[in-house]
């Protein structure tokens, strides 16, 4: 087991950790808008870290270039999809959860 495998393994499992956190956040948080926070941030970074780990494992060739394209596309598209979901929910009149209503 050489050093490159270990570094890429650290990146991949850090990405898995953030994806699991995003999933638990989507399950636990109280309403749609707060779930967007978990989905929009943690999932983007988790995917980015996993693909970064695979790029380090692969070295520089055509496949790692494709993975770089996937990472760039994810970092543009994932916040855009989050924004589209938030805007659609806001226009349809979904009320955000407030702390005072809970008590």
């Amino acid at each position: 087991m050489d050093i490159i495998t270990i570094i890429s393994g650290i990146f991949i499992f850090a990405g898995c950790f953030f994806i699991v956190i995003a999933s638990i956040g989507v399950l636990r948080l109280p309403d749609f808008y707060t779930r967007l926070h978990a989905a929009g941030k943690a999932d983007t970074l988790g995917q980015g870290l996993i693909f970064l780990g695979l790029i380090i494992y692969e070295g520089f060739n055509l496949i790692s270039l494709k993975m770089l394209f996937i990472v760039i596309f994810i970092f543009i598209a994932n916040p855009t999809a989050t924004h589209a979901a938030a805007k659609a929910a806001f226009i349809s009149g979904l009320k955000p959860w407030r702390k005072k209503d809970d008590n």
């Binding site: 808008y33 967007l36 926070h37 929009g40 941030k41 983007t44 916040p79 989050t82 924004h83 938030a86 805007k87 806001f90």
Partner: peptide, 9 residues
């Protein structure tokens, strides 16, 4: 959307 604590609606 990506920076701490805020999401664009």
């Amino acid at each position: 959307t990506l920076t701490p604590g805020t999401v664009t609606v």
